[in-house]
């Protein structure tokens, strides 16, 4: 064996251990990192897609893209009557509505009578509610579950996405994001 070959192989001998070390560091990091199983929307900063949804409840009109282009920031809440966390965030939604925030709802895969019952039980903070039976708007804005809440600015551009239910401690954050979108 030539000297060069010997040198090469002596380095190669340590290669498996080095690779194992790299693997070890990677999975340690993987174990300690905060578990993040959510898929965030990649559509933040982009304008809402074109849509026009029928009304999901009798006393609220349907929802279309134009309803967001009024110059004032609003919330778009993706919810469903069959979703338990949606009922949990209802008091916070009411609080936001009472503070003058305009909230538009998109009911995912829902029946009108169920939406009506849900609103009767949990309160109705929505100005308009669109009925999204095939998750068209949900997919269109990169939402992957219910509930999710989006901050939309006055030009109809998505500014912020909140995944999961809005808890009492999240209300201030949402208000701040709305204020930022209004600037």
């Amino acid at each position: 064996m030539s000297e060069a070959t010997a040198k090469r192989s002596s380095l190669a001998i340590w290669l498996p251990l080095a690779l194992f070390g790299a693997f070890f560091v990677l999975v340690i990091w993987g174990l300690v990192r905060p578990a993040d199983r959510e898929v965030a929307s990649a559509f933040i900063g982009k304008p809402l897609p074109q849509f026009a949804l029928e009304a999901a409840a009798q006393d609220r009109p349907g929802l279309s893209t134009a309803d967001f282009k009024t110059g004032k920031p609003k919330l778009l809440n993706v919810f469903a009557s069959w979703c338990v966390p949606c009922a949990i965030e209802a008091p916070q939604m009411d609080a936001l509505a009472k503070r003058g925030v305009e909230i538009h709802g998109v009911a995912i895969r829902d029946r009108s009578e169920d939406v009506a019952r849900f609103l009767a039980t949990n309160g109705n903070p929505f100005t308009r509610i669109g009925k999204d039976d095939v998750s068209e708007v949900q997919v269109g804005i990169g939402s992957s579950g219910v509930p999710e809440t989006f901050v939309i600015d006055g030009k109809g551009v998505i500014r912020y996405q909140h995944i999961g239910e809005i808890r009492p401690e999240d209300v201030d954050l949402i208000l701040r994001k709305l204020a930022e979108a209004g600037q």
Partner: peptide, 13 residues
């Protein structure tokens, strides 16, 4: 595995 690979490194030559 780390131990075995280290042993390999020392002994394989």
């Amino acid at each position: 595995i780390g131990g075995a690979l280290a042993l390999f490194g020392f002994r394989a030559s």
